Simulated assay, not measured.
Amino acid sequence: MVDIVVTGYGIKAPGILDKCSFLNVLENGICTQSILKSENPAQGDLVAGVIDEDFLELNKRSYARHPRAVRMAIAAAIDASEMANIDYFKSQRVAVIMGTSAGAVLEIEQYSAAAFNLKTFPIHGVSLVDSHTFSNSVAEALGLRGTAFTITTGCTASLDAILIAKQLLEAGSVDACIVGGADVPLGQWTINGFKKIRALSTATAIENAGVPFSKDHKGFVLSEGAGVIVLERRQSAQARNQKIYGKIERVISRNEGQKLLRSDATGKHMLEVFQETAGNTKPSYVNSQALGMELNDQIESYILKETFGSEVPITSIKGMIGHTFGAMGVMQVISSLLSMEYGIIPPTIKTKGKGFEHMPIVYEPTYQAVSSVLITAHGSSGNNACLLVTNK
């Protein structure tokens, strides 16, 4: 099997627009969340991860008609492609694979009233409900004419996108892949939806919202964001003297076949995926999906204990930036690449680990050599995905 390596990346998240700002957040355990003011007083304000930039103009081109999530995906993809010098490859030999969960739900919500009047219906209305807009727009912005896929598997979408990209590269179908995810889930539809099932944190103090690994807190923090990495075969990276940031060792994704909005409470399905992804590797740490939801965090505790006991540290970056749905997996990958390059395990902030005292949770920035990181992601209706990235 050929080695699939990362040669570039880009990220847009709350308080984070590039490598340096992301590293600063991770090193110092900075919470970049804020208070999202509600237009309806009856709904109340909400702690959320909000990006201040609008990304309406990128590379001197207007993207005003593109959904906000797509604009963020393009911005992250531009950064990743420049870092990887993607122009080296023939445009038809570069694939674009983007993952999303909420899609353009924000714009669909905004234009919902106009949809029933042909005169007021936006000319770009069709593209708002077409998830292919994500991958197609990234490809167009970068001048690429290869394979383009959009993956809509919820919170595991960007890890699923990486899985497909790895398979395409191993098969020799393409020479490079622009792969990642983007989501802007801060509309009322998403907020009310997760409030309805009591999954969203309703705490009004930032330090008490979306607290990983804590029985004293409940619910996660919604956040917008985008992350993109560039994958290629090791041979091509070495042939053109391109810096390699990490190797995608293994990615496994499976669905439990559960009913709508359900997932396996025993954690046995996630355990299988976790252990198969780890293989014989004892990672430097686990970059966890834990986000403040009781069942998900308990499953994270279970799979760690069953596999490594207390020998492998675990951390979650979601107390800092919140949960970005389909973009989260690739953002965890990028944070892991920074860990390996700079020798740091980022802290799990906000929590004191109430109810998880037995776990080797990293509470403070820890400087040490990092050779491999195991990344976890869960999705509603039973999607489980794990990825192992190494510095080999």
Rank of each mutant, 00 (worst) to 15 (best):
L222M: 09
D264I: 10
I108D: 03
R68P: 00
I248A: 11
T156H: 01
T366Q: 15
A76W: 03
R71Q: 13
A171L: 12
N85R: 15
S336P: 13
S62C: 09
H358K: 15
F89Q: 10
Q332K: 05
V2I: 12
I244M: 05
T266R: 08
V211E: 04
M340A: 06
Q368V: 11
A176I: 02
A176P: 01
E140F: 15
S381M: 04
P360W: 08
I78A: 00
L271K: 11
N384T: 09
A278H: 12
Q238S: 13
Q275D: 06
A265N: 12
D45P: 05
L17G: 14
A42C: 04
A369Y: 07
T307G: 11
G355Q: 02
Q368S: 07
K196G: 14
R145F: 06
A377V: 01
I229Q: 02
R240W: 04
Y111G: 00
M359Q: 10
H378S: 07
S173K: 11
P41K: 10
L142K: 12
P365G: 05
T32H: 14
T324W: 01
S135E: 09
L295M: 13
L338I: 12
N384A: 06
T390K: 13
G15P: 11
D160I: 04
E170M: 03
A114Q: 15
E272M: 00
G379L: 09
S288D: 12
L169G: 07
H66A: 14
H323K: 09
R198P: 00
M1T: 08
V370N: 06
L222C: 02
T7W: 13
F213R: 02
G49A: 13
L260H: 03
E207T: 04
V96H: 06
A278N: 08
P14D: 06
P347V: 05
L200A: 10
A113T: 09
I35A: 00
I151A: 05
G99Y: 06
V228E: 01
G181M: 03
N117K: 11
D160W: 05
V105D: 05
K243T: 14
A161N: 14
E107K: 07
Q43E: 15
L142T: 05
L261V: 09
R254H: 03
N255E: 05
K268M: 13
V5A: 07
G44K: 09
E294T: 12
L295H: 15
S158C: 07
S316H: 08
E300N: 15
F308R: 06
L168N: 09
S112R: 12
D45N: 15
V5T: 10
K60T: 11
D130R: 07
I178D: 01
D87C: 04
R71V: 07
V126P: 00
V105K: 09
